[in-house]
Design a protein around this nucleic acid. Structure first.
Length: 278
DNA sequence: ATTAATGTTCAGAA
DNA sequence: TTTCTGAACATTAA
């Protein structure tokens, strides 16, 4: 579930590890199927120990620790991964601990219940190959309205499905795609190539608005309570959702429509048929 | 006790 | 080339 606002909240929550030195790496024993680690655990250790974190960054749904030698550690939380400075929700799903010197805390943890996420230590060249254009589009908070339209304007796909494609645009996931299109007043099943220029501008504006608002609330913690910030606290944006997981409820925007759930690309989409038009 | 559902990404097919 | 489908994973709800 972590999408751009949640991952940005994680990033901000661990900013204090900037300039800290990684002096050891812990691999907590875990009876579950191990997460993906690149390179192998032993080589990961040797690659990062003794190096300093120069910058804490983010691209789309990934957290980046840029080291002083230009290598980078990339956390990709996918469904249930968390980057933490505080104690994790439980010990069984702890996957990695970076031991730090010259930081306010001794450990930076990676915790992942379902274990679909990954941790990688990569050279600048590998980072380019993994996160560069082609693999990952520009960040949803950096792209311009013109560029958004240029990238997606010719696609035959439904706009909601296209927004989820990380190769064109990095950071939007299932929850925020529904919320953004609701604010923009656009039907999620509308084909990209049928959207006018003003409507692309509306999508862009809604995207910036919803994402910044969600960051201000420190992201969405859904019913299962998995998502937490770096201090293991829940986010608050779930209380501001307009349509997500609100089937059969009255539309909070127009007050007339009833929120519907449809399935697109095997994922749930929520929208108001009254105020979201094709 | 099964089965479905959850959301992200990737490999492979259409 | 573009778009679609199923698998991977752990846990919970029906």
């Amino acid at each position: 579930m972590p999408e751009l606002p949640e991952v940005e909240t994680m990033r901000r929550g661990i900013l204090s590890v900037t300039n800290a030195e990684i002096i050891d790496v812990h691999w907590p024993k875990c009876s579950l199927k191990p997460i993906r680690v690149t390179p192998s655990k032993g080589r990961f250790r040797r690659k990062v120990i003794g190096h300093t974190i120069r910058e804490v960054g983010r691209l789309g749904k990934r957290v980046l620790l840029k080291l002083e030698n230009d290598d980078a550690i990339i956390f990709e939380p996918r469904m249930t991964g968390l980057v933490l400075l505080a104690d994790p929700p439980d010990a069984e799903h702890l996957r990695l601990g970076l031991v730090l010197r010259k930081a306010p805390v001794k450990f930076l943890w990676y915790w992942d219940r379902r274990g679909l996420g990954s941790v990688r230590a990569l050279s600048p060249k590998q980072v380019m190959a993994e996160l560069g254009p082609g693999k990952l589009g520009p960040d949803a908070l950096k792209i311009s309205a013109q560029s958004l339209r240029a990238k997606l304007g010719a696609s035959r796909r439904a706009i909601k499905v296209a927004l989820l494609d990380q190769r064109t645009l990095a950071g939007i996931g299932n929850l925020y795609a529904s919320e953004i299109l609701h604010v923009a007043g656009i039907h999620p099943a509308q084909a990209c190539h049928r959207l006018s220029k003003p409507r692309w501008q509306a999508i862009h504006a809604a995207m910036q608005g919803v994402l910044h608002e969600a960051i201000r609330y420190e992201g969405s913690t859904l019913g299962d309570g998995t998502y937490r910030n770096a201090l293991n606290q829940a986010g608050g944006y779930q209380n501001q959702h307009r349509v997500y997981a609100k089937s059969e409820q009255a539309c909070p925007t127009c007050g007339k429509g009833t929120i519907r759930r449809i399935v697109q690309a095997q994922r749930s989409t929520f929208f108001c048929p009254k105020c979201q038009k094709r």
